[in-house]
Amino acid sequence: MAYFSKREAQQILANEIHVESLLQRYPEYKDEVLKELALLKSNQEGKLVDAIIAKYTSNAKLASTKIHKSGMNEKTIETFLPVIIKSRFAIYLLEQVAIAAAAENTAKPLKLNLWDGAILQRLLFQQDLQRKPVSLRAFKLWWRLVRHKNRLMPLVNQKGIYCFYSKPLIQELSSLIGGRKCLEIAAGDGTLSKFLNESRVDGNCIATDDYSWQHYISYPDFVEKADAKTALRKYSPEVVICSWPVAKNTYEKHVFKTSSVQLYIVIGTKNPAVTGDFEAYQNADNEEFTMEYNERLSSLILPPSEDHAVYIFRRKGDGR
């Protein structure tokens, strides 16, 4: 059994150590996880994947609670910290399985032909992989001419890009935010905050991320390194926005616990196994917030998908 210092335990609990570093430090736990994930080789059903994710997420939450309640007791750390490490391994490795499967199912090797590449580069990006607000009119015209549509998202997923934002979506989100102080959590490369600030005269949306996805994302300087809980405490925002929050994450619950928050906007999917902490959503809807699935805003996420979802949470009694 590995020995953990209190400092190391605190770093792991705060997600300050990247999962790839954990994989190198604790190979014995990686081996345990790989044995269980080997089941996926013979059974690719989504229900099994969901069950494994749910199991590891639940175990990690329980372990984290035990450690915090013990006051960082040494024996409790030794017992429960490996559970958290193994959970991180499992989620990370499942991400790799998903990306590899997507690539295998589309093409070998996965790439765009010159025709599709030229259209998509001009339609979706400013340069390289820097996204731009997309004209719906141009999208409707050119998207139908792309021959291998199913190759786009598996390719860009590998760079931490999970959707594209249409100009009408940015405009309507800006209108919802108004002049209020806005914070984006889990902002990735900060594209959404950048677009929102460019579309508003008094643009003041602050982009933050804990930088835990450095294996996918190149973080620009304007994205402040801070986990969601720290950022919420530091800025006391009136509006919070999050695009493609990790499924069953541990950070969205802090949004609903922050007294300054009047409005929370989530851009993601209807599938709890893909994005979002739906347990926190349901608890918030039953307590201090109302929850709305906005069909129009959901339709403005690109490329179009029936699974896309924009959820809007308003604090009860706020009136806006």
Rank of each mutant, 00 (worst) to 15 (best):
A2E: 14
A2W: 13
K6P: 05
R7N: 11
R7L: 12
E8Y: 10
A9L: 03
N15I: 08
V19D: 00
E20H: 08
Y29D: 02
L34K: 13
L40D: 04
Y56D: 00
A60C: 00
A63N: 00
H68R: 14
K86I: 01
F89R: 02
A90M: 03
L94C: 06
L94Q: 12
A98E: 05
A98P: 06
I99V: 11
A100H: 15
A103P: 08
E104V: 14
P109C: 10
D116N: 04
D116K: 01
A118G: 13
I119G: 02
I119S: 05
I119W: 05
L123Y: 09
D128S: 14
R131V: 03
K132W: 01
S135T: 10
S135W: 05
A138C: 06
F139N: 09
F139V: 08
H148I: 11
K149R: 14
N150S: 07
N150H: 09
M153D: 08
M153P: 07
C163D: 09
C163R: 03
C163H: 13
L173W: 06
L173C: 08
L173E: 03
G178E: 13
R180K: 15
K181E: 10
L192S: 06
L192T: 02
E198P: 04
V201Y: 13
G203N: 08
T208R: 04
T208P: 08
D209K: 13
Y211S: 04
S218T: 13
A228G: 02
L232Y: 01
P237M: 13
P237C: 14
E238A: 14
V240G: 04
I241Y: 04
C242A: 14
S243M: 10
W244T: 10
P245L: 03
E252L: 07
E252P: 02
V255I: 15
F256H: 05
Q262D: 10
Y264D: 06
Y264S: 05
Y264R: 07
I265D: 04
K270R: 02
P272D: 07
A273R: 04
A273F: 13
A280Y: 09
Q282N: 14
E295M: 12
S298T: 04
L302W: 07
V310S: 06
I312G: 05
G317T: 09
